[in-house]
Amino acid sequence: MEFLKKTTEALKTGLRTLMPSCRQVARIQSDALERPLGVSQRLGMWLHLLVCKWCRRYGRQIRFLSHAAQEHSDDLTGCVPQNLPAEARQRIKQRLRSQGK
């Protein structure tokens, strides 16, 4: 009886690794951008992505967002509407003048 229980538990854990939920796959796909995945994680993710169009989209989208930010960080900086306030500009110039002497 005890043996059976343990086997079922082990099977469940194994199945969860090999058949992760969308929620887990979202995390795994984010981690994949940060570090090499383990073999079972990769296999589980791959199997899941074969059958789940939502997660395929999700992965494509977070990779797009990451790539976009890295390639276009200048565009993002450029669209900040505020400029250096005139008062700060004057102050900094004064500091530079006094330091430069």
Binding site: T77, Q82, L84
Partner: peptide, 19 residues
């Protein structure tokens, strides 16, 4: 001229830092 830096690059650096 370092004061020209402020004119030329001040806004960009400020946007960069503010973001």
């Amino acid at each position: 001229d370092p004061e020209r830096w402020v004119e030329t690059h001040g806004d960009y650096l400020f946007k960069f830092a503010l973001l």
